[in-house]
């Protein structure tokens, strides 16, 4: 009997604690912890190599953590016997390089998982996919191939693909790093809209403007450790650690 959720409205959507991951002698994550309340957006900040992307991939079990605990909607997803694909279907993920499937049209990209994982019929999946494309303002490119889209359009299609699984949590791994500056705006707008609708999100980004606008919470990382977990407003007002302030000064120049 699968227990889908033990959650009450007060349970955070995500509680990460004591996450460690090492590969060989390299310690990638060292005792990382943070908590994300329902409907909120956390932005992971920190210098390159701090372990932000690795931590993100631990959350949906793409990278196995060696130890620690991850409660997703109140459920321990690192417990033995947890079905990883079953966890991932409830957590959407968006990648730096979009990773749309090159051999499918945009619509087919979005329909694939609802049909193959959720078991929707082709017609149901098509309706759902079109609705998601409306959400990201791309319905006119439904039958295009990914290679025929601009970078910004590709990333919005990838967001639509993740949303079609109706996830309870979205993970964004540097979603605008591969985009030309004039295209980051359209992607960030979609993300902001989703956050405003109450979609819980964890975002790895270097877009300080976006972080300042959207982040309920900043998780600052350095050298595989979570240095601090601060409300977004406090962080950008300078009420944060010395190390974080130094980082901010460097990137805000």
């Amino acid at each position: 009997m699968p227990v889908e959720t033990l959650a009450s409205p007060q349970t955070p959507i995500l509680e990460v604690s004591g996450i460690c991951r090492r590969v060989g002698d390299a310690v990638l994550l060292d005792d990382c912890a943070f908590t994300l309340p329902r409907g909120q957006t956390a932005v992971l900040l920190g210098p390159s190599g701090a372990g932000k992307s690795t931590l993100l991939r631990c959350i949906n079990l793409l990278a196995p953590a060696d130890s620690g605990r991850i409660l997703f909607d109140g459920r321990d997803i690192m417990a033995p016997g947890v079905d990883a694909p079953g966890v991932r279907r409830d957590i959407g993920m968006v990648f730096q390089n979009f990773e749309l499937f090159d051999h499918m049209t945009v619509l087919e990209n979005i329909m694939l998982a609802p049909m193959r994982v959720r078991g929707l019929s082709r017609n149901q999946a098509r309706d759902l996919a079109m609705a998601m494309l409306e959400k990201v303002h791309l319905p006119h490119r439904a039958d295009a191939l990914p290679s025929g889209l601009s970078g910004g359009q590709q990333q919005r299609a990838a967001i639509a693909r993740a949303l079609a699984m109706q996830p309870r949590l979205m993970l964004y791994d540097e979603p605008t790093s591969a985009l030309d500056p004039e295209m980051t705006g359209e992607v960030l707008t979609v993300m902001s809209d989703l956050a405003a609708e109450g979609m819980a999100s964890v975002v790895v980004t270097h877009e300080m403007g976006f972080a300042r606008r959207v982040a309920d919470q900043i998780v600052f990382m350095q050298a595989g450790q979570v240095v601090e977990e601060t409300p977004g407003a406090d962080f950008f007002a300078g009420r944060c650690s010395v190390r974080a302030r130094r980082f901010l000064e460097r990137v805000m120049d």
Partner: peptide, 13 residues
């Protein structure tokens, strides 16, 4: 690309 595989796994396949 390995990313195509990762993206598929991330969708719950």
């Amino acid at each position: 690309r390995p990313g195509q595989r990762t993206a598929g796994l991330a969708l719950g396949l």
